[in-house]
Design a protein around this nucleic acid. Sequence first.
DNA 1: ACATGATCCGAGAGCGCTCTCGCCCGTGGA
DNA 2: TCCACGGGCGAGAGCGCTCTCGGATCATGT
Lengths: 342, 342
Amino acid sequence: MTETVPRPTLEAVAARAGVSRATVSRVVNGSDAVREPLAERVRQAVEELGYVPNQAARSLVTKRHDAVAVIVAEPETRVFADPFFARQLRGISKELTAHDNQLVLLLTEDRDDHARVGRYLAGGHVDGALVISLHVDDPLPGLIRSAGVPTVFGGRPDFSGGRDGVVYVDCDNRGGARDAVRHLIGLGRGRIAHITGALDQTSAVDRLDGYRDAVVGADPRLVVEGDFTSASGERAMRELLDRSPGLDAVFAANDLMAAGALRVLRERGRRVPDDVAVVGFDDMLPIAEQTEPPLTTVRQDIEEMGRLMARLLLRTLDGTGAEDQAAGGLILPTTLIRRASA
Amino acid sequence: MTETVPRPTLEAVAARAGVSRATVSRVVNGSDAVREPLAERVRQAVEELGYVPNQAARSLVTKRHDAVAVIVAEPETRVFADPFFARQLRGISKELTAHDNQLVLLLTEDRDDHARVGRYLAGGHVDGALVISLHVDDPLPGLIRSAGVPTVFGGRPDFSGGRDGVVYVDCDNRGGARDAVRHLIGLGRGRIAHITGALDQTSAVDRLDGYRDAVVGADPRLVVEGDFTSASGERAMRELLDRSPGLDAVFAANDLMAAGALRVLRERGRRVPDDVAVVGFDDMLPIAEQTEPPLTTVRQDIEEMGRLMARLLLRTLDGTGAEDQAAGGLILPTTLIRRASA
DNA sequence: ACATGATCCGAGAGCGCTCTCGCCCGTGGA
DNA sequence: TCCACGGGCGAGAGCGCTCTCGGATCATGT
């Protein structure tokens, strides 16, 4: 609507500065092959005309887009309840904009979406992709692979065992979980239950493994599967109390579920931490601080994970060899944060 | 990395189908000016070669990008705590992808970011913009205006009074608030407090106005300002109880704050709804359902707002006249959802 | 049979940019 | 003084697409 003012082109700037297009291009792209008096004249012309390069024309020849896709592969509701994604997204966004790259967001819910994403990536509209919250049976990695788009995953993909060239960033889920449970053991707790996350995600599996590392030969009735939502935390806690009334500690695979567990424990009249100690995972603020009592939990720096994912990808795209240093996975450390719940 | 297979061009498809570029272009873009036997041959060639149009080349001539920017103008922490944004984003995403448009996400925190966003929009990289969560003192609308990019706002901008051409989608904040408070009055409550949202957002102001519509000449001590976070809800509730111990109802400007208020009320030994009735706003699931007791609240369809914003913008971009039908604002209705808290 | 449209398709220009190539000019060595 | 050399700059091609325009083809009216 309304006639858009035609934006000045390289040609126009060149004319105004009395030089050739090539020279303007050189100046704009920061080449040092233009001597000072001229370069300055060009810069001034750019300024005066308010010239902004046409990205489409540029991409047409460079085959770079300075854009990366961020794929949020969460089928349903969790994205809404869990601040996790927003936080990771922010980390990614920061790093990306710091390097003048655009963030193209792709939200997927079902298989149809995956096909669409596959087509999109194959279409070569972006230079790379970042995948958040992948589930094990997801066809996405395959699509991405065949699209040939450089990709960094957030969280270890389930097939990363040894498949070549898979790059991911994750936190030390297993080690963090182990620390959490050992802390409970150190508190003298003997019947430690675990509420797992959605076991179609490796983070949940790894945390479960960490739990098992610490509690060798754990009573299987002390482990209940949740799905990272607080509702599932409540459900799991009820089940645990019904099955094993004698439990004296709970390690939940994230803070949201821990908060749910806390509610049920209160409802059932168990004192925390006196009767039952509770530890979460994520240190998701403000949730972890506002539970009653405040949650002892395993901190992971989610925003940093996002930043790192983006940095890794950009480095790959630059050709600044990421192959060597990061192929495989980058694992961030976790810290146990002690509050009142355990 | 690794040599990317050069993608087939229009030219290649044309050669294979034994037609001209122009004809392939016509088929690809769904023109009906190609007769059937030929069109089919082209389609087959496209299929066989796995041809995908080069968006950059296309944009270069059409001056359209089929991309819109979504600007989340939230300075800080709220984006993380409140599922609001994720939900609106999903609505936007759905509508956009349904029309083959890309979603370019721009997260802004401070003034520097705004300048960057302004430059980005002025750069003409996107066809339009969607702005979420605008604050009153924000320079963004000005930047957008001077960039000349068609824009739809989520939530009424503070200057929308009569300024020409401002398009926005909002829910009936004032009416919804009025209904909520009238409901409390209908319950026989006489001292109804209000916890406002961040008053630099029109939604908070409008809800406050709705409250005042219903409680004419309200005791100013019954109104405390919050900022939409649950922590602020707790703080406000404490202040209210200290100042006006006799209150018998609270209307909070969103569910998060209502949940905070609920916690404080329980902590202070007030029964809900017997001693104090509580109403929230948003019907943010699962929060509203999982409070204790479940929250009576004003429902607004956030995802639908997102969808509508996108639809309005796309329509404007198509030239399918949105000027007439939507210039000004589109206000969605709200519904009071009765649960146990009031 | 020929003129007249209408319809379908191809030729070609051009969108705004980058980048190679070669020209020109200035400098230094003989 | 002349030649070789090198670095700064311009000319021009071409990225992959769209779209106008005109030519070819075919049905139709007379």
